[in-house]
Design a protein around this nucleic acid. Structure first.
Lengths: 138, 138
DNA sequence: ATCCTACAATGGACATTGTCTAAGTCAAGT
DNA sequence: ACTTGACTTAGACAATGTCCATTGTAGGAT
């Protein structure tokens, strides 16, 4: 974690209590938090932190490539601290649980030139949707 | 199109002017409209149609499998009338343009059992993100 | 150690997208 | 043509996110 803080400071990020708290919240083992969940946890440590700051900070961390935005449903965006190892997501349609997964193969290679319409492709997102064991049992 | 109306009627769908108009709007060659775009076009034909009805009707068409919901950005959901031919999406990060594409291969096969965590997987969505020729030129 | 200043934080208004509800309307079967 | 339950309506409400003017402060300069 102090890794993260060091990296950010090294990039000229001005270190404030608010930014530190947001970074620390994302460093826990709780993955895939929404912005408001991050805010709620940040408030526990720094009660006066504002929503706008959390949103701003999350946006900056995304721009810096330190965290990923994940939109698996039409609800709130979620933030994934696991930005340095490429992965995809497996989502339960019932309860919304999200797991990181590592598919084999390269989906980019599956898209022929004739299907690219002149686009320059920068990234591929794959979302597997299904039912988790818990919800299947219920 | 009247295909669609017939199919719906055959399933016991009560046919109203509002539903007919929504179905007709989606039948055009304009793909990937947002709910409010659908509403705007519907209003041109049936000025008193309400937003709620458009939302309801779109939701029903999705449940019936006649159209697909597409969430390529964190903005509004889009509705894709091309529900009967499996396809994925290619999205321009600049202008938001969306193209239907047909990748080769089967992403489901790329996810080993050990990466499924007991989930039953029902669908796979693949989104290719990049820059379209227009935006690349600008 | 103190001062400066550009950058960051605040909070509250605002925007967008979508959902809900109570009341009125109408399609379609009889 | 009547009846009835499904459909539609308008507008309030909810959830998520953005913007802006003001206030605060980190960190370099003195």
């Amino acid at each position: 974690m102090s890794d993260l803080l060091e990296r950010l400071r090294g990039r000229g990020w001005r270190m404030t209590a608010q930014r530190r708290v947001v970074a620390e919240v994302l460093d826990g083992d709780h993955v895939h938090l929404t912005a408001d969940e991050v805010h709620a946890r940040a408030v526990e440590r720094l009660p006066e932190i504002s929503r706008a700051t959390v949103y701003n900070t999350l946006g900056e961390l995304v721009s810096l490539g330190e965290i990923l935005e994940v939109s698996t449903d039409r609800r709130a965006k979620r933030y994934d601290p696991n930005a340095h190892r490429p992965h995809q997501h497996l989502v339960c349609a019932e309860c919304g649980a999200i797991r990181d997964v590592h598919p084999q193969g390269n989906p980019l290679a599956d898209l022929p030139d004739t299907e690219r319409f002149g686009f320059t492709i920068a990234a591929v997102e794959v979302t597997y949707r299904g039912t988790c064991p818990n919800c299947a049992a219920a």
